[in-house]
Structures are given as structure tokens and as C-alpha cells.
Nucleic acid binder design. Structure first.
Lengths: 214, 214
DNA sequence: CTAAAAACAGGTATTTATACCTATATTTTT
DNA sequence: AAAAATATAGGTATAAATACCTGTTTTTAG
């Protein structure tokens, strides 16, 4: 069997090392592992190199798992993605699957389950761990709330402005950069604060950090 | 240096393997590791064998970390315990420390930090990671500042000011609350930004969120 | 004991943010 | 086709933050 070229994305060194060790001590599959700390790094690597499989942690700083998944689809990077999560929240699972994740397993999975998932996905099948499958079966179709858009109705422009404000840019600097008036930027900023319920730019920054807009 | 006989308690195989690998690939300390899945198993092992150190996950099924810690004290098992946690909730940290935990670190710790913590604790010192220490400073009025050393040399007053700025309070509001001049608050804010290298209050908020001062 | 750092606070000036107002062209939704 | 939301941007005014200056008192460290 051919060596699997795996991109492993998780912000915890502990988890990366653990999975690496587990995969090295089994004989079903032969894996070469490249590691990434967070989504941003993963995207950079996925653009440069050709992987057979990506294992993506759901909860990460800088760029979370779901956002990374979306970004990969945007970039038309068609590498199958296995999501790895600490939590079994239904919303996250649905969000991941509806954004093209090939599988979803929990971090308490055994080595056996992880390799099974990897093999399935390499064969272009989907894989859900039993626990995850059960959640989806029992709680039927409610909606898939996309993290920020649906909850706060932020526009792409607004998110762009947020990300620049969080880089410590002033309204004037942002305006100059985007070739729009400082006033327009102010307008966007105020609209954003209104939408998310922030009293000042401070609340805006907290919001941004919380939702991984950086 | 003598071999440390470590009992590692975590319900995630991934984390146990990861820590095992990490500890094997460093040379500062020599460790023999016994693993346990959850608190109940840990207590059984601790009664049978003599360990030098216990690393205890906070969130576990069957018997969680804090309960295990309590149970160990009840049984007069005096092995030092280093708590390992995914979350930085103040209550958990206080609960752990007041029940005799010798240290508390987060799962995103580096290998270096983990070994540092282990060495400290083996010397019967306490060890708190910076993130954890800052949570305690911020929410305590004037308790135990001796434990705390942070890399930015922030004073307690400065951390207090940060925590209020992050609550979206203005300099004037903070001044009124603390019965000091708005100017003094401005002075503190500027000093803080200088120390942490922030260009504006935005950078200050990002710093605060990153270090769990909220 | 002396020197350094921290906490305090006033002055002045400039820049930035916030709070209101207004309006128009474009895009999206119904 | 009409209505709603978005992105644009100007005016005016106030509040807040930032950048300099200056100083005193208290606390901490060498």
C-alpha cells in the first residue's frame, strides 16, 4: 500500500505528537506526516504541497477548523478532510459536513477508529464515528447556523473592516488602503458595533478574537 | 538525576501518547510513565504503587480531576499533583489549588513548560503557567502575588487597569471607579501599551484576551 | 540608605473614535 | 417592480485616546 501523505492540523503539540506516535506504532497504513499549528498555516501548506488527506482540529486559534475547511473549498483544494474534535456539538458536526468534510471523529477515539476513518476517507467514502453518527440520527434536521454570518448578519465588507481594525489600523489607514473615505470606514465600524452589541472598539476586538477574525 | 516515576492520568489516548513522546524526546528529566484512563484507575494505582508525581487531567469521565485530587488527599496520599487542563476557568483553577494541587498548566503548553513545571513540583515548589497565574492575579484583589511572575513585568495595578479597559470602560469611568484621576489611568494605559508593545488599545485588548484577562 | 520603579496627576496639543445628522448609487431580496 | 440592505460619503460636534511635557509621593530593591 502506498504511503499516505498526511497534513495534521492541531494547535496542541500534545495531540499532534500523540497521533504521530499512534500512527507510527500500527501497521495497517503507512503515513508521512506534516504538521501545522493552525488553519492559516495549513492553508499555506496545502497550497504549496499535495497531500492525500488532511486531519483538521475543530477548535483552533488564528483560523478555526470550520473556517479552514471553507477556505480550502474556496481555493478549490479538493483534498479530503477528516475533522477531529473535542466536542460533539451537533451544530459543529453539521457545519463541518455541510462544508464538505469527509469525516468527523472525536478526540477520544481509539487508534483503531482513527485508522479506520483514514482508510475510509482515502477510498473516498465518508466516515463518522459511532458517537457522531448517533448524534446526527437522533437530532434531526434543524438548520445549520454558520458561525458569524447568520448570527450577526455581518457582510463580507464588514468582516474585512473588522480584520483590519484588529490589526491596529485606524479608520484613516483602512480608508487609504481600500481607497474609500475614512467616513465610510467609520460608518462600517459603527454598523458592526451596532450589530454585535459592542460599546466601543474594545468590544469589537473581543468579538473578533472570539470568532477567530484576525 | 534520578528517574521520575510518573502517573499520567488522562482519558484521551492521544494526549497520553503525546506527552509520553514529548517526555521521551527531551533530556532534562528521565521519566518512567504509568498511564491511567480516569480518576478511579489512578487512585487504584496510587494506592498500590509509589509515584513521584501525578499529572492529572481536569476533565475526565468516571472520576474527574478535582474529585480525584480530593480523594487522594482523603487517602493521605501525598504525591504532588500537576493538573493539566484544556480550560482556564478560574473556579477550576482555584478549586484545584485549594485542594492541594501543586501546579496547574494548560494543554497547549510547550514541552519546555511541561518539564519546567515537573521539575518545580519535584522540588516541592508550586508551578502555574503564565496564563493561569494571570487569571488568578486579575480576579484577586491582593492575594498571593508571590506565585506570579509574568514576562511583561506588569504590576497588579496595571493588570487591574487592563481588566477594566477590556470591560469597555473609558479612562474616566475607571478613574471614577478607583477614585483616581483620568490622567493617572491614561498614564497606566500608556505604560501598559509600552510594556506589551501595543500601538493602540486594540493591541492591548488582544493581549488581554490572549492571556485570559477578561 | 540611596536609587529605581510605581502610582499619582496636572498642562497642552493632536489625532482618533463616537454620535448624531444627512444623502446617493448599487446590490440583493421579496 | 418595489423594498430592503449594502456600500458609499459628507457635515458637525463631542468624547476619548494618544503624544508630548512636567511634577510629587510612596513603595520596592540593591
Amino acid at each position: 500500500m502506498k504511503k499516505i501523505n498526511l497534513l495534521l492540523v492541531d494547535d496542541h503539540e500534545l495531540v499532534r505528537k500523540g497521533l504521530t506516535l499512534m500512527l507510527q506504532t500500527q501497521k495497517k497504513i503507512d503515513v508521512h506526516i506534516t504538521q501545522a499549528n493552525h488553519g492559516k498555516e495549513a492553508i499555506k501548506l496545502a497550497k504549496e504541497q499535495d497531500f492525500d488527506l488532511i486531519i483538521l482540529d475543530v477548535n483552533m486559534p488564528v483560523l478555526d477548523g470550520i473556517s479552514t475547511l471553507k477556505k480550502l473549498k474556496e481555493l478549490a483544494i479538493m483534498i479530503p478532510v477528516l475533522m477531529l474534535s473535542m466536542h460533539k456539538e451537533e451544530d459543529l458536526i453539521r457545519d463541518a459536513l455541510s462544508n464538505g468534510a469527509a469525516g468527523y471523529i472525536l478526540k477520544n477515539s481509539s487508534l483503531d477508529e482513527i485508522t479506520k476513518a483514514m482508510i475510509s476517507i482515502m477510498k473516498r467514502d465518508r466516515y463518522l464515528s459511532n458517537e457522531v453518527a448517533e448524534i446526527l440520527i437522533n437530532h434531526t434536521n434543524d438548520e445549520v447556523p454558520t458561525l458569524i454570518q447568520n448570527e450577526f448578519n455581518l457582510t463580507l465588507r464588514e468582516i474585512q473592516i473588522i480584520s483590519m481594525l484588529v490589526k491596529e489600523m485606524t479608520s484613516k489607514e483602512i480608508g487609504d488602503y481600500l481607497f474609500i473615505s475614512k467616513r465610510t470606514v467609520d460608518g462600517h465600524r459603527n454598523k458592526i458595533m451596532e450589530k454585535i452589541g459592542a460599546k466601543s472598539a474594545v468590544g469589537l476586538v473581543k468579538f473578533a478574537v472570539k470568532y477567530g477574525i484576525e
